[in-house]
Design a protein around this nucleic acid. Structure first.
Lengths: 152, 152
DNA sequence: GTGCGTGCAAAATCTTTGCATACGC
DNA sequence: GCGTATGCAAAGATTTTGCACGCAC
């Protein structure tokens, strides 16, 4: 009996792409680990090699980007070209960032409810809050228009 | 007449460190740019060189880390050793991270107020929200005890 | 004068890419 | 069989580090 087609197969075939053992192993690993784990490319590679899978690190990188583009994975804290720094202004202790994922335009804002929610979550598990930052990924007005014309 | 001692001088001298022209130029740059700018090490270097300052990129890196440790700068989205990925579970669209800055222990949580605040901020400037993540930096219970014993 | 900070260049990381081969379809 | 995916190794990109010299104190 054939195993039922999962969303991975369907998504890949839809684009003329292929389901390889490597791709399945990568996604399987994330599913085994549960949704609480945050793995780097190196982590994924080491775990798969330890589990006797034959995968190269280059393929891990290619596969991770593919799975992100297909929506199976989220990439945490993407920093386009190096970490960034900003002035620590004590007037605005915890402020948040609204970033256009297309053009990189950034707006800042503050929000008390966000800070309170962070504090509450920290206290709930006995953590002592230091600071918090909300990163909102979005499309700015200009890029919304552009995206409507040429869906990437 | 001597210029008044700023917090940078005071903080440095307190630790037997020195105020060099390079360090002052780096902090001055951030102050000129205002609190809305997010500069990479490369950005800082290029701007200073363009402004005729004599600084090497290595010094920029060393200075940025120093200023962060001293609390003058914030480092945005620090990703310790490479970006990380997680399963995109559609049951939990936008979830948030509580990270112990000392041991790296991570807890996840969800919060409707946070999502609503992100959405409101996006709409306020005409952005179309995609997703949002709140990163809360904190000390976990064990590290609070350790920190009390050996203040780093 | 002492010793911290800098510049330079090499090294260490992390990630991407070119090309020949392997294999899913 | 066709054309995508992989492995390998080399190239890129980013960040760190060793060492001798220079300068803040």
């Amino acid at each position: 009996m054939a195993r039922p087609l999962g969303p991975l197969e369907v998504g890949l075939h839809h684009d003329g792409r292929r389901l390889t053992p490597q791709r399945r192993r990568v996604l399987d690993l994330f599913e085994q680990m549960g949704s609480g784990s945050h793995l780097s490319a190196e982590d994924v590679h080491q775990q798969l090699v330890a589990a006797k899978a034959k995968v190269s690190l280059a393929t891990i990188y290619r596969t991770l980007r593919l799975l992100v583009k297909m929506g199976f994975l989220h990439e945490l804290e993407l920093n386009e070209g190096g970490n960034r720094f900003e002035l620590a202004s004590h007037d605005h202790p915890d402020h948040h960032h609204l970033v256009c994922v297309r053009c990189g335009r950034t707006e800042e804002f503050e929000s008390d409810p966000v800070i309170q929610a962070g504090r509450a979550a920290a206290e709930h598990v006995g953590f002592q809050l230091i600071d918090s930052t909300l990163n909102v990924r979005a499309l700015c007005p200009s890029c919304q228009k552009l995206a409507a014309l040429s869906p990437n």
